[in-house]
Write a protein that binds this DNA or RNA. Structure first.
Lengths: 168, 168
DNA sequence: ATAAACTTTCAAAAAGTTTTGAAAGTTGAA
DNA sequence: TTCAACTTTCAAAACTTTTTGAAAGTTTAT
């Protein structure tokens, strides 16, 4: 396999994987493109490389900035905006974990907390089953939340810090 | 909030969350329904409770069985099939992790392995960046794969087993 | 102030995904 | 074997998400 073909395959694979994880395919493709590109690219170049429209490219680049995965780069004397991706895979994983925690885990914990407050007849099997499931899920989610929080601040903790190094 | 409303909210929340993680919304809703229902339900009852069609109910129940999240129950003297969910949250998480590993991580590792083989000019910045990203992602994915494997067999390992207990 | 260079917006279109429901298939009892 | 009970299939319809591209907006140099 030659480099250009391999690049394309990488971009496609990343895009496909992302959509299986509820992340917009184009967003992942643009990210993949910037990941394997040494220099920063303009909106125009991204449009060109991936054959997508200006609107799509612009929105996607903005979203990626919102996720903290890419950054704008301004070149002196030029009006154009250039974009480049942080190439450190561990930073990327941290950033994604951080964002999803904020966007999904936090709202989930809120709802589960409310549902845990629902009162009912302790002898009603329906209530008992409902309550147990909600309580269990809530417990696990809170643990996941705490663990994520610790891991995002990982290097500080000798314990998680050393586990974390096993993954590098 | 009363129990019926709370049940509905649980089902909806679970469904919404699932779709943010690339899992079919109805599948998660049916799973949520069975999670908070003490007895096993028939296809008919699932259709009724969630106002979905027979075809959808049937396919979704089959998918859930494929994911190892629910089981069929045959009642003696009856032709109808009843379905119930494993209520142990940790089993559910394990099952989901196991399936996604098989469906996504394994194919990803295959592609990354191929892409890592691509040869090129070590002085070409394009090749260097491509190769570094692919290698780094591959390394991290392999680690994740190994870690998952260990955690899925967790209780056996004193090390991961004790970390694992912190989440229970 | 004007114009060129560039970015953003958003309604409509396209693409992708999920759901429906009627028909076909299967199974077991009589 | 036939029938009723039940399950499965799948093409078409409904729904959701993503993409397009032209128009509007912004910024900077002259």
């Amino acid at each position: 396999m030659q480099l250009p073909e391999a690049k394309q395959k990488f971009i496609d694979t990343w895009g496909k994987l992302a959509s299986e994880w509820g992340i917009n395919r184009t967003m992942a493709q643009v990210h993949a493109l910037l990941l394997i590109t040494p220099e920063a690219l303009t909106t125009e170049q991204v449009m060109e490389e991936l054959s997508i429209s200006r609107g799509n490219a612009n929105m996607t680049l903005r979203d990626l900035i919102g996720w903290g995965l890419i950054e704008k780069q301004l070149k002196p004397g030029e009006r154009k905006e250039y974009f480049f991706a942080d190439k450190d895979i561990w930073n990327i994983a941290r950033q994604v974990a951080k964002e999803r925690r904020k966007r999904e885990l936090e709202p989930l914990l809120k709802v589960l907390g409310e549902l845990e407050q629902v009162k009912g007849d302790k002898n009603d099997p329906d209530f008992k089953t409902f309550n147990k499931s909600v309580t269990d899920i809530n417990k696990m989610s809170k643990n996941a939340d705490r663990a994520l929080d610790t891991m995002l601040k990982a290097e500080e903790s000798w314990f998680w810090g050393s586990i974390f190094k096993m993954f590098k």
